[in-house]
């Protein structure tokens, strides 16, 4: 029977960790871009901006309604056939683009819910003392919406880190792609994939710990 080859795993660890920065960069860039896009979508949805609202709804419907893998293939393999200027797009850019569009659709809905969830009477109170709409948003609504949305947004970020592994299907040698190559040459598939699973797991656990600390901070005002 095959016994777990710990020496191989220990040797593989630094090699795989070398690919972790690329994974985190793709997730980080995707998250930042998705946050900006999601906020825009959420504001359009909350204010029901004529025209834009319908577009936002269509966008959200499509990107929530189709698998991420399908979207990535569409951007990387499909679209360049129609829009030839996209031929030069590389796998990393296509992944970041796909993650951004896909996750912004989900995040827009939770940001919208968080904004709408702030008690309407606080809006009236802010207006009654003479605050403008933008002061109201900045000082009263968004700080409270942030608190409500943070746990869900952190979950999407965690999801996004794991979803970067799909970049491997676009030929990008990131954490998952590198593991696949190493495993194929050593034939120690179990060790290699177990190790990469553990790496993802530890990264996610560190983030979950940060998330709990952040939530504690944000909840200070609500302790009875």
């Amino acid at each position: 029977m095959h016994v777990l080859d710990l020496d191989y795993m220990l040797g593989l660890l630094p090699i795989l960790l070398g690919y972790l920065p690329l994974t985190l960069e793709m997730a980080g860039a995707g998250m930042l871009a998705a946050l900006v896009l999601a906020c825009l979508l959420a504001v359009v949805r909350v204010q029901r901006t004529p025209g834009l609202n319908a577009l936002a709804m269509l966008f959200i419907s499509f990107f929530r309604g189709t698998p991420l893998l399908v979207q990535l293939f569409l951007f990387y393999y499909g679209l360049p056939q129609i829009l030839t200027f996209l031929v030069a797009i590389n796998g990393i850019t296509a992944t970041i683009l796909g993650l951004t569009l896909h996750f912004s659709a989900y995040m827009a809905e939770s940001i919208r819910a968080a904004i709408v969830g702030v008690d309407r009477s606080q809006t009236e109170a802010a207006l009654s003392i003479g605050m403008t709409q933008s002061q109201l948003m900045r000082r009263i609504i968004l700080p409270q919406a942030t608190r409500v949305a943070t746990p869900t947004l952190m979950n999407y970020f965690i999801d996004m880190i794991k979803a970067t592994s799909l970049a491997f299907t676009l030929g990008v040698t990131e954490l998952m792609g590198a593991t696949q190559k190493e495993a194929a040459s050593s034939f120690l598939y179990f060790e290699a994939f177990l190790l990469v699973a553990l790496i993802y797991w530890v990264v996610v656990e560190i983030l979950s710990w940060l998330q709990r600390r952040l939530e504690k901070r944000l909840n200070r005002a609500y302790q009875r």
Binding site: D119, S121, Q122, E124, A125, A126, S128, I129, G130, I140, P143, Q144, R147, A221, Y222
Partner: peptide
């Protein structure tokens, strides 16, 4: 700015 309002349900800023 010339008027102030006191609400039935207080409507304090929760944050």
């Amino acid at each position: 700015r010339r008027t102030a309002f006191v609400f039935q349900n207080y409507a304090l800023f929760a944050n």
